[in-house]
Computed example of a mutant assay.
Amino acid sequence: MSKARIFDSSQFFQATDGEPIRSVVTESPDAVVVAWYINPNQKIPPHLHPNGQDTWTIISGKGEYYLDKTGATQPIAAGDVVVAHTGSVHGVLNNGSEPLVFISVVSPATAGYQLVEIEGTNS
Protein backbone atom coordinates (compact mmCIF):
# COMPACT_ATOMS: atom_id res chain seq x y z
CA MET A 1 0.00 0.00 0.00
CA SER A 2 1.43 3.36 -1.05
CA LYS A 3 1.04 6.49 1.09
CA ALA A 4 1.62 9.98 -0.28
CA ARG A 5 4.78 11.59 1.08
CA ILE A 6 4.98 14.89 -0.83
CA PHE A 7 2.18 17.47 -0.69
CA ASP A 8 1.64 20.83 -2.40
CA SER A 9 0.74 22.85 0.69
CA SER A 10 -0.76 25.66 -1.42
CA GLN A 11 -3.64 23.30 -2.24
CA PHE A 12 -4.70 23.37 1.42
CA PHE A 13 -4.59 27.07 2.39
CA GLN A 14 -8.15 28.44 2.62
CA ALA A 15 -8.93 32.11 3.16
CA THR A 16 -12.22 32.90 4.93
CA ASP A 17 -14.01 35.98 6.19
CA GLY A 18 -15.02 34.22 9.41
CA GLU A 19 -12.87 32.04 11.61
CA PRO A 20 -9.73 30.50 10.05
CA ILE A 21 -10.17 27.00 8.63
CA ARG A 22 -8.04 24.10 9.84
CA SER A 23 -7.09 22.27 6.61
CA VAL A 24 -5.64 18.81 7.28
CA VAL A 25 -2.84 18.00 4.84
CA THR A 26 -2.23 14.48 6.17
CA GLU A 27 -2.64 12.53 9.38
CA SER A 28 -1.52 9.31 10.99
CA PRO A 29 -1.47 8.05 14.58
CA ASP A 30 1.93 9.78 14.90
CA ALA A 31 0.96 13.30 13.80
CA VAL A 32 -1.54 15.62 12.13
CA VAL A 33 -0.18 18.13 9.60
CA VAL A 34 -2.40 21.19 9.15
CA ALA A 35 -2.24 24.21 6.80
CA TRP A 36 -3.40 27.54 8.26
CA TYR A 37 -4.24 30.79 6.44
CA ILE A 38 -5.10 33.54 8.93
CA ASN A 39 -6.37 36.83 7.51
CA PRO A 40 -5.51 40.15 9.22
CA ASN A 41 -7.42 40.54 12.52
CA GLN A 42 -8.34 36.84 12.60
CA LYS A 43 -7.06 34.60 15.37
CA ILE A 44 -6.65 31.07 16.57
CA PRO A 45 -7.83 31.36 20.17
CA PRO A 46 -5.56 30.41 23.06
CA HIS A 47 -5.62 26.66 23.62
CA LEU A 48 -3.42 23.76 24.59
CA HIS A 49 -2.86 20.13 23.68
CA PRO A 50 -2.80 18.17 26.97
CA ASN A 51 -1.20 15.07 25.46
CA GLY A 52 1.16 16.34 22.78
CA GLN A 53 3.15 19.05 21.07
CA ASP A 54 2.22 21.57 18.34
CA THR A 55 5.01 22.88 16.10
CA TRP A 56 4.39 25.72 13.65
CA THR A 57 6.56 26.67 10.67
CA ILE A 58 5.67 30.22 9.64
CA ILE A 59 5.72 30.63 5.86
CA SER A 60 4.55 34.23 5.51
CA GLY A 61 3.03 37.06 7.52
CA LYS A 62 3.30 37.90 11.20
CA GLY A 63 1.28 37.77 14.38
CA GLU A 64 1.17 37.91 18.16
CA TYR A 65 1.64 34.41 19.60
CA TYR A 66 -0.03 33.61 22.94
CA LEU A 67 2.42 32.34 25.57
CA ASP A 68 0.30 31.67 28.65
CA LYS A 69 -3.02 32.13 30.47
CA THR A 70 -2.18 35.74 31.37
CA GLY A 71 -2.49 36.79 27.72
CA ALA A 72 1.22 37.49 27.31
CA THR A 73 2.27 37.39 23.66
CA GLN A 74 5.41 37.45 21.58
CA PRO A 75 5.76 38.49 17.93
CA ILE A 76 6.22 35.73 15.35
CA ALA A 77 6.96 36.16 11.65
CA ALA A 78 7.89 34.37 8.44
CA GLY A 79 10.86 32.08 8.97
CA ASP A 80 10.09 31.30 12.62
CA VAL A 81 9.56 27.79 13.94
CA VAL A 82 7.37 27.92 17.05
CA VAL A 83 7.02 25.01 19.48
CA ALA A 84 4.21 24.58 22.00
CA HIS A 85 5.34 21.72 24.21
CA THR A 86 2.77 19.41 25.81
CA GLY A 87 0.30 21.46 27.85
CA SER A 88 1.66 24.85 26.73
CA VAL A 89 -0.87 27.60 25.99
CA HIS A 90 -0.63 28.88 22.43
CA GLY A 91 -2.66 30.58 19.72
CA VAL A 92 -2.16 33.60 17.51
CA LEU A 93 -3.67 36.92 16.45
CA ASN A 94 -2.74 38.16 13.00
CA ASN A 95 -2.04 41.81 13.76
CA GLY A 96 -0.37 42.42 10.40
CA SER A 97 -1.70 43.66 7.07
CA GLU A 98 -1.01 40.42 5.18
CA PRO A 99 -2.23 36.85 5.71
CA LEU A 100 -0.38 34.76 8.28
CA VAL A 101 0.36 31.41 6.62
CA PHE A 102 1.89 28.43 8.38
CA ILE A 103 2.05 24.66 8.70
CA SER A 104 1.27 23.07 12.06
CA VAL A 105 2.36 19.58 13.12
CA VAL A 106 0.53 18.19 16.15
CA SER A 107 2.11 15.06 17.57
CA PRO A 108 0.76 12.59 18.38
CA ALA A 109 -2.60 12.77 16.60
CA THR A 110 -4.25 12.06 19.97
CA ALA A 111 -2.74 15.21 21.54
CA GLY A 112 -6.20 16.54 22.38
CA TYR A 113 -7.42 20.15 22.33
CA GLN A 114 -8.61 22.46 25.12
CA LEU A 115 -9.59 26.11 24.80
CA VAL A 116 -7.98 28.33 27.44
CA GLU A 117 -9.63 31.38 28.95
CA ILE A 118 -7.25 34.29 29.31
CA GLU A 119 -7.20 35.48 32.92
CA GLY A 120 -9.37 38.53 33.49
CA THR A 121 -11.45 38.08 30.33
CA ASN A 122 -14.60 36.25 29.38
CA SER A 123 -13.31 35.06 25.98
Rank of each mutant, 00 (worst) to 15 (best):
I38L: 04
G63N: 04
Y37F: 15
G91L: 02
G71A: 07
G120T: 07
H47M: 05
S60N: 13
W36T: 00
R5S: 11
R22L: 12
D54F: 04
V32D: 05
E119S: 12
P99M: 06
N95G: 02
E119L: 12
N41E: 15
A77V: 02
H90T: 03
D30I: 13
P20G: 06
T70N: 06
F102E: 00
F7I: 06
H90W: 10
F102P: 06
N39W: 04
A15T: 11
A111M: 05
M1Q: 11
G112W: 05
P40I: 05
I21W: 00
Y113V: 08
V89W: 10
Y65D: 10
S97R: 12
S2P: 13
S88C: 09
S107K: 06
A77R: 05
S123L: 14
V92L: 10
Q53N: 08
Q42I: 03
I59V: 14
K62N: 11
W56P: 03
E98L: 09
I59L: 15
G120W: 10
V105G: 05
D80Y: 06
N39L: 13
I6T: 14
L115Y: 12
S10E: 09
S123G: 14
A78H: 06
N94I: 11
W36S: 00
P50G: 07
Q74G: 03
I6E: 09
A78M: 04
W36C: 01
P46S: 03
V33N: 10
Y37N: 08
S28W: 08
N39V: 11
T86A: 03
V82C: 02
Q42Y: 10
T73H: 00
W56G: 05
S60M: 04
S107M: 12
Q11M: 09
R22Y: 01
Y66D: 10
T73K: 06
I103E: 00
V83D: 04
D8K: 15
V116W: 02
Q42A: 05
H47G: 05
E117F: 02
V24T: 15
A84K: 01
G61E: 08
M1V: 12
L100D: 09
S10G: 01
Q74H: 07
F102I: 04
G61F: 09
I58L: 10
A35K: 11
T55C: 03
P40D: 01
Q42N: 03
V82I: 11
P20I: 10
E19K: 13
A72C: 03
G61Y: 01
I118T: 15
G18V: 11
G112C: 08
T26A: 14
K62Q: 15
L115Q: 11
D68H: 09
P40T: 03
E119P: 05
T16H: 08
D54Q: 12
N95V: 14
V83P: 04
P40F: 03
K62C: 13
V33G: 06
H85A: 07
S60P: 11
E27P: 07
A84L: 02
K43L: 09
R22S: 13
I44T: 11
N95I: 08
S23M: 08
N39T: 12
S97L: 11
V24I: 15
E64P: 06
A84C: 01
S88T: 11
P108H: 02
V106G: 08
V81D: 00
T57L: 14
L67G: 05
N51Q: 12
